[in-house]
């Protein structure tokens, strides 16, 4: 699943120091549950993103454990405190060992 995976995150460009901002994240992924069978009746092996994290300047905002019940193209929305200018790092961990990440800078206005 290392090909065709596309992360998308929405973070405001600026915030006041100490402000709470809403963050949304989405990534393209089949999230194969391990419950489905192919045409020959064989179980299609599980292949999901099992962990998602968001850190800001090295400090954790949210660390999510995902199970196969998370929908295809996993979506998360949550709130982060922005104490100073810096960079959000978003990381998705795939069952197959692949790690996808994306970064977003935020300024203090």
């Amino acid at each position: 699943m290392a090909s065709g995976v596309k992360p998308r995150v929405k973070v405001p460009k600026t915030a006041a120091a100490g402000e709470a901002v809403t963050i949304k994240s989405l990534i393209s992924h089949k999230m194969e549950s391990g419950q489905r069978k192919d045409k020959e009746g064989n179980v299609i092996p599980r292949s999901i993103i099992n962990r998602f994290t968001c850190e800001f300047n090295g400090q954790m905002v949210i660390d999510v454990t995902l199970e196969p019940a998370i929908s295809t193209n996993p979506y998360f929305q949550f709130e982060a405190t922005v104490p100073e200018a810096g960079e959000f790092v978003f990381t998705w961990y795939d069952d197959d060992g692949s790690v996808y990440d994306t970064k977003k800078k935020i300024e203090i206005a």
Binding site: A20, V21, E55, F56, Q59, M60, V61, I62, D63, V64, T65, L66, E67, A69, I70, S71, P74, Y75, F76, Q77, F78, E79, A80, T81, P83
Partner: peptide
Amino acid sequence: ATFNFGPLAASQSAATR
């Protein structure tokens, strides 16, 4: 899913599908 909130979580809330 399990949501673990870090020190910079502004609220202990999250949405997903």
